[in-house]
Design a protein around this nucleic acid. Structure first.
Length: 729
DNA sequence: TCTTTGCGAGTTTTT
DNA sequence: CTCGCAAAGA
């Protein structure tokens, strides 16, 4: 029997979407073009499965790549089914879902359920210690090493297998794995890697989850890496009810190990698989759809698909050429104001998308100047603050006392470096964790040479921590966190002694509360930490410059972050060779195609209007560079759907362009052309992020260092290469 | 032991 | 410039 609600399920769908939803059993792959109602298909399918077919919601596993997508899906479903049913669905990101399973099954792997999650900073610091300990002098930075290890893990390559190919990295990798195990810590890749390990070595556990997850749905399948795909294959092996949705044209995470061949090879893994295509675009105007089709046609590697639309033609895709990045930003700002006046558009209907985060500075400044409220998506800044990192170190050792990174972070502030080193050596010799040594301090301190004061300090510290841990056992996250803060306020005279801290704490909790729909009511401290460390990267940072209008803001973000979103008007900025496509992508055709897909993603975010901008000169990384317009602009040279707002900008044919790219001497010559107005010059007015307004008094002969007189803070030497400086013309 | 100073390195995209 | 680290100074 169908309720009226269930009828609504069908009314908003077209016939091909309905067909996709009605096929429940067996492997299914849906190739869904941009704007074809992908999310709607997944959400309605889930609702249909539960309400019409009667499938138990706890048998459903739905995986997404971003927290944003998971949240969006939950919201949409929640309007159509019972709350109790919603809670039973396993819906979330790969990392979130499998970190939960690892918590439940951790005993198989020798971990505590309260294992710590290491972020990249933690991993880097572990690598640094390893390099120190092993006395290795590699040419690779810890960052590069951890990226390499990450790549291996995502391809399920163990250090043992690696030994033959790259001994040096393999040894570091091995040490890293052992240290993480000892600390009971998992990094992002471990969450997937260990899940694979679990399923591979413990068939009974695998069987349990195969039985539980009878129906598996995966969004953005083109972004799965090997590690993820293997988990899925194992889980789906028994019931084979696997439903994946993807668009090869929108694969933009190859640098993270995403492998398009997963989508191309789906029918090899499941030869009975049914293939559906969703090709009608509901999002964008005809001109935008045409332009994006044109762009993607330049890629050789792709599945056959023809995205089309019945929507109105709309305006042409606009291309604007500015003289400098400052002028580019001004154009964007004034164009927003103009469109707002002319139409009913609000701030929130606009998005400004860029390739690299660094491009946001000038735009932010200009928007502020023109009093346009905006918000910027990116990493959260408050976690970078020292107090917060300290506080979280305490949180983490409360849930997992073996977490070496966090413990050392704290101890370093209490005793000297030398003492820390002595303890570390002791821990190594005795093969005990640092926390164990401190806990049985009476047995251990006679073994090392330290003075009485230090000895007492540590003794004091550990007994207080142990007391508190005992007292707070099993309390909820909020109570524990509050007690820790109080404890710190009493103990340490340093930085936190005011309401400031309470405010920050409230912020953290509010943030996690916002994620609650994803977190299914887990209120333990380790649950809190898990969601915090898995979600924190994606939190949006809102810069308030208009208190009255909390929700109506222009969005600024990288194109990567914009995936899955849509806006009426989209600005894609900085369309210049070496920036977009990025410099490092130019050496291989494969990387270049990924950049093109990235551009495709950007363009297809737009519903009504897309505006592409590029500059002739850009002040980037300390140099004034004369830019060549991006090849993507060239690829759109079709009068039908493109409108060049201001000029006959100097187009180069593709052949000329590539010859310029290959010829580095001509590029150097271009770099040295400085007749543009917004570049540093004596007497020019500037604005500095910290020092405010000023005037350039002098420049060195390479134009690298400027002497600037600031109205407020006086004379300063400024390194142009790195200062976030805005130069007025 | 705590604070100050000085130096080198770093810019693609992120779960 | 900003961050982190190491060595010198108080």
């Amino acid at each position: 029997m169908r309720s009226s609600n269930a009828d609504n399920i069908w009314s908003s769908l077209n016939s091909s979407q309905r067909k996709v939803i009605k096929t429940i059993d067996g492997p299914i792959i849906v190739i869904a073009g941009a704007g074809s109602g992908k999310t709607r298909v997944i959400t309605h399918r889930i609702v249909h499965m539960i309400k019409n077919i009667g499938i138990d919601p706890s048998n459903i596993l739905a995986l997404t790549f971003t927290n944003k997508a998971a949240k969006e899906m939950k919201n949409r479903i929640s309007n159509m089914i019972k709350q109790t049913d919603l809670r039973k669905i396993s819906l979330g990101t790969f990392h979130y879902i499998f970190s939960g399973i690892l918590r439940k099954e951790s005993h198989w792997l020798g971990y505590s359920p309260n294992y710590t999650i290491y972020d990249q900073k933690d991993s880097e610091s572990v690598i640094k210690k390893i390099l120190n300990d092993l006395n290795l002098n590699t040419s690779f930075s810890p960052k590069k090493i951890i990226r390499k290890i990450s790549e291996y893990k995502n391809n399920l390559f163990t250090y043992k297998k690696l030994r033959k190919f790259n001994k040096e990295i393999s040894i570091i990798y091995e040490n890293y794995v052992k240290r993480c195990l000892k600390a009971e810590a998992l990094d992002f890749d471990d969450i997937l890697f260990h899940t694979n390990h679990l399923f591979f070595h413990f068939p009974n556990v695998l069987k349990k989850y195969q039985e539980k997850f009878k129906y598996i749905l995966i969004d953005e399948y083109q972004d799965t890496n090997r590690s993820q795909n293997t988990i899925i294959k194992n889980l789906a092996h028994q019931h084979r009810n696997i439903f994946v949705v993807g668009d090869d044209a929108q694969s933009i995470y190859a640098f993270r190990g995403a492998n398009i061949s997963n989508i191309l090879n789906f029918h090899m893994d499941y030869n009975e698989a049914k293939i559906f295509r969703l090709e009608q675009n509901y999002r964008s105007t005809n001109h935008i759809v045409q332009a994006s089709n044109k762009i993607i046609s330049f890629n050789k590697n792709q599945l056959f698909k023809k995205v089309w639309t019945n929507n109105e033609k709309g305006e042409e895709v606009k291309i604007y050429s500015a003289s400098s990045e400052r002028k580019e930003a001004e154009y964007i700002a004034s164009h927003i104001l103009y469109l707002k006046k002319k139409t009913k558009l609000q701030n929130k209907d606009f998005a400004i998308l860029y390739r690299a985060n660094i491009q946001s500075h000038v735009i932010e400044h200009t928007l502020k100047e023109k009093k346009i409220p905006y918000k910027i998506y990116g990493s959260i800044s408050f976690y970078k603050r020292k107090e917060i990192r300290d506080l979280f170190a305490y949180f983490r050792i409360f849930t997992n006392s073996n977490d070496e990174e966090s413990l050392l972070h704290i101890i370093k502030k209490i005793v000297s470096k030398k003492t820390v080193e002595l303890i570390l050596t002791l821990s190594k010799n005795e093969d005990k964790t640092v926390y164990t040594i401190l806990k049985k301090w009476k047995n251990y301190y006679p073994l090392i040479k330290i003075n009485k004061k230090t000895k007492n300090k540590l003794e004091n510290f550990i007994s207080k921590i142990e007391n508190l841990r005992y007292k707070l056992n099993d309390q909820n996250a909020y109570i524990i966190a509050k007690s820790i803060v109080n404890f710190l306020l009493k103990e340490n005279k340093y930085y936190y002694n005011d309401n400031d801290f309470q405010y920050i704490l409230d912020n953290i909790f509010r943030y996690v509360k916002e994620q609650e729909p994803l977190n299914n009511g887990d209120i333990s401290l380790s649950g809190f930490l898990r969601s915090f460390f898995l979600f924190k990267e994606k939190e949006e940072e809102v810069i308030i410059n208009d208190e009255n209008n909390e929700y109506d803001k222009v969005s600024l973000m990288t194109i990567h972050l914009s995936k899955g979103l849509e806006f009426s008007v989209v600005f894609i900025v900085g369309l210049e060779e070496n920036l977009f496509p990025s410099k490092s992508s130019l050496d291989t055709p494969l990387k270049l195609e990924e950049e093109r897909r990235l551009f495709y993603v950007a363009l297809t975010r737009a519903q009504k209007k897309a505006i592409l901008t590029y500059t002739k000169y850009r002040f980037l990384w300390g140099k004034k560079i004369q830019n060549i317009p991006s090849r993507f602009i060239n690829e759109l040279q079709e009068k039908k759907f493109v409108d060049r707002e201001n000029q006959k900008c100097f187009y180069l044919s593709t052949t000329t362009q590539s010859s310029i790219n290959n010829n580095s001497s001509s590029r150097i010559r271009r770099d040295t052309l400085f007749h543009e107005k917004t570049f540093p010059k004596k007497g020019r007015k500037v604005f500095h992020k910290n020092f405010g307004e000023g005037i350039i008094l002098d420049l060195d002969n390479k134009n690298e260092i400027a002497i600037i007189k600031f109205h407020k803070s006086g004379r300063k030497k400024i390194l142009l290469k790195l200062a976030k400086l805005i130069i007025y013309s």
